[in-house]
Nucleic acid binder design. Structure first.
Lengths: 304, 304
DNA sequence: TTGAAAAGTGAAACTTTTTTACATATAATA
DNA sequence: TATTATATGTAAAAAAGTTTCACTTTTCAA
């Protein structure tokens, strides 16, 4: 709580045995009875609107209360503050402590101010990431990384909104020594799926996990014995069921308008994790590869 | 009561308990690049010891940093505070909010277990998002949304890694009533830039903000009077300077391997925010558009 | 009651702090 | 290199805060 022991001149001002270190509210409330009529006006306003008063100058407070600046100045000393500045500071602190952070997840509202909308959006996003992170299992991660490292090639699949995640995965893994591919078009994705074999690995991303086209691709991959790593939001989805390894992007959606929005970022974070793990695991195996990877990264580092 | 509504720029900066237009850290960090040598000294000290600095008078801070009081006074105005008093107040708040945070950010290590790597990746990501969120200013958001809503067309630009963010933005805004476009190829982006005019709006994404090709596009856009909204990681970058409105994706990168990785997600989150704001603002203007947008979203909801 | 003495108060003088104006230096630009 | 724009410190002005002092009210013993 707020003892003002930081300020050196403090001790000089401190008087009387009565005043032990005390919170601002306590200090004012405790002394309230002993205050004079005018001083009470000041104390009252300060207690009622600490936040507002904390931003006032002594003159403003003076005219707001009808009490002279002189009296206010003396008042704050009586309350054991070194000066007016310190008093307002304490009020500001008090105002903050009094506003407990309610970290509920309120729905976005049309009446929201712009920064509120932004804040809520970020909060949701962060929340999704936390949930996604918690759902990751070491075991699944290990299997995925193992498959990736030993794969002859890694192809990323994703349609519609999920093509963005697939593209991102492709971009990232391009920096590694792995042999990666991505095709934006569905028909080509399907054709490529047919060409892969049991030494290859596929990473498929789909929010719902039940999109028809996506399932066609998975089917094709399964038939060819390709290792399938899935990233989806629903563990019960056909995609998750058909995959060798699957990761969940959990979103806890509240607002239907946002559907898929937060899951994309969670998908990317999963890909980031896979990327980092792959890089670190590959590099610890072959120093040669390591330096090669580093070179590549170094090159791309300052771009774009 | 006595709010200091006399000063006009005040309202933009004014922070209600919950709706902080922009946090102090974000404000200082976001502007850090643009500060002069002397100003950086002040900013540094303030960031390092907000609690201590918050209790200093301007003179004390002056002699502590070796910078004249005049410069400090001007510095705080540049940071958008009404006066020095308000600045110290904000620092005091920040000092409180910051203290419970002990979360260190350990570097990723090759010896880390897989789940540790994943956890760290998620932690970094979340941290970047928090920093990015704090750096958003209500004022810039408002300007961006206004431009977007009234634009004849909105084109997304982004090269290399940033093309993913641009593509994502395009995908999202496709769901709105806005007239949007995106072209993956650089040459086509450049040609399209030449075709836009002063009623159009462009959203350009670039991590470094100093990529040569990107700047060519910006140049073209500026010449044609196109409104440019930039998303970049450096406030001092040529892109940020040339843009009408710019947003910062702050990443606090620790590991060179991750460069750009976390910023992508922050960029997406900024786009998400812009998207939500635009949808909500458009919808509150025309009910007709609202239902139309809802229909579209409803349609796309269960896909992919 | 009444008349010191004590306590409270505001106006104004005074001190300190902060801001602004101005001159100079430095960097950027053409 | 000349010219303009940008920073910076000094010093003067303005604003904020404190103290002094004269006046009023309250307290309380005679």
């Amino acid at each position: 709580m707020f003892t003002k022991s930081e300020s050196p001149q403090q001790n000089a001002v401190r008087k009387g045995a009565a005043t032990i270190a005390r919170s601002t509210i306590g200090k004012i409330r405790g002394t309230y009875d002993q205050l004079s009529r005018t001083e009470k006006k000041v104390a009252q306003l300060a207690l009622d609107n600490p936040g507002v008063v904390s931003e006032m100058t002594i003159k403003e407070l003076s005219s707001a209360t009808g009490v002279s600046t002189a009296t206010i100045s003396r008042f704050v000393k009586r309350m054991d503050y070194a000066n007016y500045r310190e008093f307002t500071m304490a009020l500001a602190h008090m105002a903050i402590e009094d506003t407990p952070q309610v970290s509920s997840f309120p729905e976005l509202d049309e009446g929201d101010s712009l920064s509120t909308i932004a804040n809520k959006t970020f909060r949701y996003t962060i929340h999704s990431l936390e949930a996604t992170n918690e759902a990751l299992s070491e075991h699944e991660l290990a299997r995925a990384v193992l498959k990736l490292i030993h794969a002859q090639s890694v192809t990323f699949f994703g349609l519609g909104g999920s093509s963005i995640a697939a593209l991102d995965g492709y971009h990232k893994f391009l920096r590694t020594s792995l042999n990666v591919a991505f095709y934006p078009d569905y028909d080509i994705q399907l054709m490529q799926a047919a060409k892969l074999g049991k030494d290859d690995c596929a990473i498929i991303i789909s929010h719902s996990g039940r999109n028809h086209e996506t399932l066609n691709i998975v089917n094709e991959l399964n038939n060819n014995g390709v290792t399938v790593i899935a990233i989806t939001s629903y563990s019960g989805s056909p995609l998750a069921q058909a995959a060798d390894v699957s990761f969940l992007s959990l979103t806890d959606e509240v607002n239907y308008r946002s559907e898929g929005m937060y899951s994309l970022i969670s998908q990317l974070a999963i890909l980031d994790s896979l990327f980092m793990m792959t890089v670190l695991r590959i590099s610890s195996r072959t120093d040669q590869t390591l330096t090669k990877v580093r070179d590549v990264i170094e090159q791309t580092r300052h771009e774009l």
